[in-house]
Design a protein around this nucleic acid. Structure first.
Lengths: 167, 167
DNA sequence: AAAAACTTTCATATATTATTGAAACTTTAA
DNA sequence: TTAAAGTTTCAATAATATATGAAAGTTTTT
């Protein structure tokens, strides 16, 4: 396999993984491209490399910046903006975990809480519903706490966690 | 809020959460519906409750059975098949984690491994690429190991893990 | 063996999501 | 102040993922 080919396959695979986990393909690809680039890239270069339109590049770069995992860089004497990715894989994963918790898990918890306060109703269905939504609430909220504990370790959190779990 | 309304909102929210995490909405909803139903449900009942077609119900039920989180149940003297969900939230989450690892994480690891074996090339780009794909490989594989360790505990794995992390 | 009761399949339709590209906007330099 | 260089927005379009429903397939009952 040639380098160019390997790079291509990596970008494709990473994009596919992204979409399976609710991150849009292009966003995942731009991020992957920036990760493996020794130098920061301009929007033009990104468009060229991934064969995407200006609008698409612009929107997804903004998304990545919102997630806090890509930065703008201004080169002295240059008008154009350059983009670079957070280089530390651990910190990247930590940021994603924190953001997804904030954006998705916590809103879900709020709904699960809400939904148990329906008007008195003693039917079998209602009882079961109360019970299961409570169980789900407990589970999700414990999982969220766990994620928080794991990611609160500043460095090498995955490794540290495995160590602790070795018992 | 009335019970019916609460139930409705729960099914909607759970469906939305599913799609954000790469599980199709209907599949998530059928599962949620079965979770909160005191009795197992026939396909007709599911179609009725979620307002979906027979084909849709059939395919997604099969998907859920493939994931190992929904079972068919035959009632004595009845022709029709009934469906029920795994009732234990912990075991549910464990099964999902195991399946997603098998279906998505492990194939990705294989590609990451492959992709580093490109023909000799000492360019700066190629060096950086080797380095980052290696880092990603290490991270993903450690994360997968961690997930495995966590979910290998048969019961209450989230709680147990939090305990261990309390240091 | 054929009708009845039910399930599955799959080509087509629909809905959702992502992408494009041209116009509008912003900033800098001449 | 206006042209040039660059960025953002967003309505239109394309691509993708999901859902439908009728036909084909099963299994059971008569």
């Amino acid at each position: 396999m040639e380098f160019k080919e390997a790079k291509e396959q990596f970008l494709q695979t990473w994009g596919a993984l992204g979409s399976q986990w609710g991150i849009n393909k292009t966003m995942a690809q731009i991020h992957a491209l920036l990760m493996i680039s020794p130098d920061s890239l301009s929007m033009e270069e990104i468009m060229e490399e991934l064969q995407i339109s200006r609008g698409n590049a612009s929107m997804n770069l903004r998304g990545l910046i919102d997630w806090g995992i890509v930065y703008k860089e201004y080169k002295p004497g240059e008008r154009r903006e350059y983009f670079k990715a957070d280089q530390d894989v651990d910190s990247l994963a930590r940021k994603i975990a924190i953001e997804r918790s904030k954006r998705e898990i916590q809103p879900t918890l709020r709904v699960l809480e809400d939904v148990r306060n329906f008007d008195e109703n003693t039917s079998k269905e209602a009882q079961k519903f109360k019970q299961k939504t409570q169980e789900l609430y407990d589970f999700v909220s414990r999982a969220d706490t766990m994620l928080e504990k794991i990611t609160n370790q500043k460095e090498n959190w995955v490794t540290k966690t495995i160590m602790k779990l070795m018992t």
